[in-house]
Nucleic acid binder design. Structure first.
Lengths: 184, 184
DNA sequence: AAATTTCTATCTACTAATAGGTAGATAATC
DNA sequence: GATTATCTACCTATTAGTAGATAGAAATTT
């Protein structure tokens, strides 16, 4: 892996485990064995690095989803939940949860990118829910985008909560999401 | 207000708006017009201050709830949601959301207090849900404690998300919580 | 009641470490 | 020879924390 990619990879780990204000260029430099000035060569400011991290994660997520080809909306929803399970198993949180926590200390640029990404996430999940409802697979009361928000918020927050309480809570909540929505 | 209380009050604001790693003793000192060394006099380390903040918020919340005397479980649930609305209106997040975000950078002591507090929150909400169900006011599929977690996670995460997206999302989610659970 | 001691809260002054960032030399690659 | 990537060396500001002085209030002794 080339240096630039290594830096982004390490930054992702720090941001999604400790937050943007609890890691420094020195932390990354120690981790991959280069000097902090070399990181500044690729990412002049910390904001540049965070932007690169955010765009990298968004891009990767898009590609991963393109690869999946779900036969029905039930497995599409399960696949969506699996994305969150995977992050949880690595003791990380999603980039949305990570950057949302620091939003008042970040530059407006990041807020804008993040806002756009969250809307896309809601769209993606709402589409699965809407299609699944029309196929008589799901039942729920809210509008699809609001129902998507209900599920997204369950996953984002239980990911955080289960780092403090018993890990089992994560499984119970993710299971309940499916029970509440799958018909019969 | 005496100095010690002022320090805790300011620290609460910083922690619930910027996070524990994005404020310093200097920030507080500037805000209330004393030297940082005077803050160290009351709270020798930053961990001491965060512990004091956490215990203060827990205590205050307990007292506020004792003052309320809900006639039925429907208004008790609405009262619980109102607590979160109040925090959101101040552009803050709950102390649980705030400290959960920084948990990997905090001392084990804080994790222990927070774990205990989260369990108490689940108990409190689960009790409302359970009683309300027995009184035929609520309908839901999960065990009371899991249903409590579903609602708590909705509120914690939408509080964060709505700081990035449209504020309206917060109202839509909090309204949906009630629609989904209130019988007929 | 006056004098003295102790306590409380604050201040000035300092420290070692870290943060984010810059300038410019140098080596390796195209 | 120019470009790319890395390094050394530096800078300014901030961070968390300590040591010790001091002023005023409160308690104690004479």
């Amino acid at each position: 892996m080339e240096t630039k990619e290594k830096i982004v990879t390490e930054a992702i780990t720090f941001i999604t485990t400790r937050g943007t204000n609890a890691f420094s260029y020195k932390d990354i430099s120690k981790e991959i064995g280069i000097k902090t000035s070399s990181i500044h060569y690729y990412f002049p400011t910390k904001n540049d690095l965070i932007v690169a991290v955010l765009e990298h994660v968004i891009q990767k997520n898009k590609e991963d989803r393109k690869r999946n080809n779900y036969s029905n909306m039930k497995s599409a929803l399960r696949g969506y939940i699996d994305e969150h399970i995977l992050i949880r198993e690595q003791n990380k949180v999603s980039i949305i949860a990570a950057l949302a926590a620091d939003i008042n200390t970040l530059e407006p640029q990041i807020k804008a990118i993040l806002n756009n990404y969250i809307e896309e996430e809601i769209d993606y999940l709402a589409h699965i829910l809407d299609k699944g409802e029309k196929e008589k697979l799901f039942v729920y009361k809210a509008a699809p985008r609001i129902q998507a928000l209900m599920i997204l918020t369950n996953l984002l927050a239980i990911s955080r909560i289960s780092m403090i309480t018993e890990k089992i809570y994560f499984d119970e909540v993710s299971r309940q999401i499916l029970i509440d929505i799958e018909k019969k």
